[in-house]
Design a protein around this nucleic acid. Structure first.
Length: 884
RNA sequence: GGGCGCGUAGCUCAGCGGGAGAGCACUACGUUGACAUCGUAGGGGUCGCUGGUUCAAUCCCAGCCGCGCCCACCA
């Protein structure tokens, strides 16, 4: 006997251990079954499970369990990402607590520390993922800095370099003055900042009283100015083009140039040019051959290129000083308050500084071309489709990808420099030495590039590096390309686009067929979750409170086809927890009534109409689920399961079969027990991907097949069409009728059963005719008035009703407010009349009759008839309730 | 500035050319032996606004209003 409620906490760990023990998550490269592959986005090794993970991994687990049950050889490839900057920061923070800096340790010792940290704390998120029920193939877990993956990284780097697709270049980069590294454009966040706009007067050379006004939000950069730009058609400044200004405070003579970049409408129409510290100025400077004057060091303090007074000042201190000095000289025209966006590093949190350095770049534009075509041609498909636009937009405007980082934790760049600076890019030191020997004709000392690669460089290889590339492993042949990649839109650029580029380039084929993009999880008000707002929801706490299944089901149910963000309210989870309880109790009821899985049971051979009906509904639900899964419509999956379980199986089937089980003949009872057991068993299969724990527990309790775990069971497929249209029509119609009858109540003071009988007797002359035509079941229903209102065994407040072989009890309200009831029926009549009127108008419209498809016209006529019938019934009921 | 998306019941959201839907919340009644984590019923919507296409528009098209996100830029 089952407990009265399901206690998730008691069984989740047990079943997870059973699954793992049975190797139920393992893919089998030797299998003959068609593969189904999902590459798990490598989790940040520093991370811990947050609600966004819960969403993305729930979806992936639902998919992988579904396809596994469908008979596919399912591989869910898990792993973690070394998360270069993030991890290094974590370990550096620890060192700082001991009063140390990484430089105190030196590179090797520091890296050892990081590896120690990883060994100790790096597995947190993978452990937490198990609480979610994720059925990844843990034996295949990979880490982006594994030997194998590191080899793949080196090979990709070397190959791309030799193909001319990786190169070294001196350009402006986004420099993080706190982390002391370059970062890519994507790692820069624009932060809205209240600032000021200073208008400076730059004196024109040789014209004592003439100034040109330039505006800036960053006064300190003027120390690095090497020109002023005006628009070529700007009449105000035409005469000044080619002249020079004398840069205040510095005294440098810098040219005034004409360039389209200067917008006459903005500010004064003249712009100061700081080519070494502004991306736009850099381009203008390049066109006009302006001097590049680097005025910052790596901390964004002023260096020796500025007058002595300012040297060593922090950029913000320098700003104040420059403003004060210009003010003193009367060179400030005016100052405005100004709201603008300041670029910040997404990890360091300080304003980034455009800085001129040597870095490694990937020629992304070249790699992007085939990656664009692959999506255009549908080799990879985004779901929902609209994300393809985002992808195209970015890919078509892609900039060189800066891949070098000035940190220690990561894949060190396989480049070695000779004494004269010649670079040798090779797989290893020996190869580099050999290449150098060849180049110089003798052995020379080489120095390895100190930089490491952007973390996303190794992530980009994930779909094939995890499968053993560059070796030609059986896994690589079998599981590449993956079937679907599931991720949030926030990393389309960071990750999806780059996997596409690398996958196509190195494997000659897209890395995945579908990219399923889901939304972000927000709080119930639609606010982004954040520490500062204090609205973070911890998925593990939710699992503790409501059970894993409820959390998973909720997240899936909220995942709509439009890919909207998921607004998560705890009450919703509670509702789906209740759903689990409902299922639990249905199973409990079934067991109490002798339902069991009978291997000899053939659903196609049921004789009882209700049994035939539920079997058909189950098959219909299963078909719907297959469609929903194929389209990634998780909300539909959830709704279909919820509706079938609660509103068909529990509300009607169980109620209809109660009389059979208590009073039917032996054959009917046996069939009903078997049918109930069978439906329950199939239902558990259908629910399993969404709710793995409760279903596995019930599967065990129902004793279905003692040797088989539900996770390894087959997904139901119904060869024969189990839906009997006649039975379906009859029972569906009966349900509708009962619902209506329930709604149309009769007088007070009449015993409950009699009310229904009287109502049926009086109200449905037309209905009765129709009933007669509906066959046995409804015919019996039509004989309701023969049921003895005082029949024994009829529970209080209920009426007995006969459907097929079954007798059911229909609860009816005892006390009814007569006035209220009349008012309700009156409104109902009015509404029905209105609808009928609408259809009449339509049917009188010649153009409608001429142009609408005949079946639509027919439909409208039928609907009219139904409405009229209903209206008549309501009218009779109303009449009966009216005072004589 | 460019792009994407969203405005449907009090809330969260499906639907997307011919009957306005679900869950939650709300109200009333009930509680029978699977289930109070329950049951039955009910109230509640000019489907953002304005035009157009159509025999027919919540659905398609255009414009407007409001909201969100992404990219670029704001000297």
């Amino acid at each position: 006997m089952l407990e009265k409620t399901f206690r998730p906490a008691e069984v989740e760990a047990k079943h997870y251990a059973r699954w793992e023990g049975a190797k139920a998550f393992a893919a089998d490269p030797k299998s003959k079954a068609p593969p189904y592959t999902i590459m798990m986005p490598p989790a940040n090794v520093t991370g811990s499970l947050h609600i966004g993970h819960a969403l993305t991994f729930s979806i992936q687990d639902i998919l992988i369990r579904y396809y596994r049950m469908k008979g596919r050889d399912a591989l869910w490839q898990p792993g973690t990402d070394h998360a270069g900057i993030a991890t290094q920061m974590v370990v550096e923070r620890q060192l700082a607590e001991e009063g140390l800096h990484r430089r105190d340790l030196g590179r090797d010792a520091f890296l050892n520390k990081v590896w120690d940290w990883k060994a100790q704390s790096g597995g947190t998120i993978m452990r937490q993922l198990r609480r979610l029920g994720t059925s990844a193939d843990w034996a295949r877990e990979r880490f982006t800095m594994d030997d194998g993956l590191s080899l793949a990284v080196r090979k990709v780097f070397v190959d791309l370099y030799k193909q001319g697709l990786i190169y070294r270049d001196k350009r402006l980069v986004n420099w993080d003055p706190k982390l002391h590294t370059a970062i890519s454009d994507l790692e820069v966040q624009q932060v809205e900042t209240k600032g000021k706009l200073w208008h400076f007067k730059y004196p024109i050379e040789g014209k004592t009283d003439r100034f040109i006004v330039v505006a800036t939000t960053r006064p300190e950069t003027m120390l690095g100015d090497s020109g002023v730009a005006v628009h070529p058609d700007d009449d105000r400044y035409k005469d000044l083009v080619g002249k020079h200004v004398i840069l205040p405070l510095v005294g440098r003579r810098i040219p005034i140039v004409a360039d389209d970049y200067a917008d006459p409408e903005t500010g004064s129409g003249a712009v100061k040019m700081t080519p070494a510290h502004d991306f736009n100025d850099f381009e203008v400077g390049r066109r006009h051959d302006l001097e590049l004057i680097n005025i910052f060091d790596r901390d964004a303090r002023l260096n020796d290129q500025v007058p002595e007074k300012y040297r060593g000042l922090d950029r913000y201190a320098a700003r104040e000083q420059v403003v004060a000095d210009l003010e003193a000289k009367g060179l400030i025209d005016r100052v405005e308050r100004h709201l603008h966006k300041v670029p910040h590093g997404d990890r360091g949190g300080v304003a980034i500084e455009p800085w001129l350095t040597d870095q490694w770049y990937v020629d992304a534009a070249t790699l992007a071309k085939p990656a664009i075509e692959a999506v255009e041609q549908g080799q990879t498909r985004f779901v929902p489709r609209q994300w393809e636009n985002t992808y195209f937009e970015w890919m078509r405007n892609i900039q060189p990808w800066c891949i070098s980082r000035q940190i220690w934790w990561g894949h060190q760049i396989p480049a070695w420099y000779g004494p004269d600076g010649t670079v040798f890019v090779e797989m290893g030191e020996q190869e580099a030495e050999a290449a150098a020997r060849k180049h110089y004709g003798k052995a020379v000392a080489l120095e390895r590039d100190a930089d490491v690669l952007d973390t996303w460089f190794s992530s980009a290889l994930w779909p094939f590096s995890t499968l053993g590339w560059p070796e030609e492993t059986p896994e690589l042949a079998r599981y590449y390309p993956g079937d679907v990649l599931v991720t949030g839109f926030d990393i389309i650029f960071f990750w999806v686009a780059r996997m596409m580029m690398m996958g196509i380039h190195f494997m000659g084929e897209v890395p995945f067929r579908d990219v399923y993009i889901h939304g972000l999880v927000r709080d119930q008000h639609g606010q982004k979750m954040s520490k500062s707002k204090g609205n973070i929801v911890d998925p593990l706490e939710l699992i503790d409170s409501y059970g894993c299944d409820a959390v998973r089901f909720t997240l899936a149910a909220l995942t709509t086809p439009a890919g909207r963000d998921v607004k998560l309210a705890e009450s919703t989870i509670e509702g789906y927890r209740n759903f689990g309880t409902k299922l639990w109790n249905a199973a409990r009821y079934a067991l109490m009534n002798g339902a069991a899985i009978d291997p000899k049971f053939d659903p196609a051979k049921c004789r009882q109409p209700v049994n035939r009906w539920i079997v058909g509904k189950l098959a219909e639900t299963a078909r719907g689920l297959d469609e929903a899964f194929a389209a990634y419509r998780f909300n539909d999956v959830a709704a279909l399961l919820y509706h079938f379980t609660w509103h068909q199986f529990c509300d009607w089937y169980i109620e209809f079969t109660k009389p059979i089980l208590s009073r039917g003949d032996e054959a009917a009872i046996a069939e009903t027990r078997a049918a109930t057991g069978w439906v329950l068993g199939e239902l558990l299969r259908l629910l399993h991907p969404m709710m793995p724990f409760i279903t596995e527990e019930l599967w065990e309790q129902v004793g279905a097949s003692r040797n088989e775990l539900l996770i390894a069971a087959d997904w139901p497929s119904f060869a024969a069409d189990l839906t009997d249209p006649e039975v379906e029509a009859e029972i569906d119609w009966t349900i509708r009728l009962i619902s209506e009858v329930r709604a149309v109540r009769a007088e007070v003071n009449v015993p409950a059963a009699a009310k229904l009988a009287l109502l049926m007797k009086g109200a449905d002359i037309k209905t009765r005719t129709r009933l007669a035509a509906q066959g046995e079941i409804v015919e019996r229903l039509a004989r309701l008035d023969r049921i003895d209102p005082d029949a024994k065994d009829v529970p209080k407040g209920a009426v007995q009703i006969v459907i097929g072989e079954a007798t059911a009890y229909l609860p009816l309200a005892d006390a009814i407010d007569l006035d209220q009831e009349r008012a309700r029926l009156g409104r109902e009549t009015f509404k029905l009349d209105g609808e009928i009127g609408k259809i009449d108008k339509k049917l009188a419209n010649q153009q409608f009759l001429a142009k609408a498809p005949p079946e639509v016209v027919e439909e409208q006529k039928e609907r009219r008839a139904e409405l009229v019938e209903k209206r008549d019934r309501v009218a009779v009921a109303l009449e009966r309730l009216s005072p004589a």
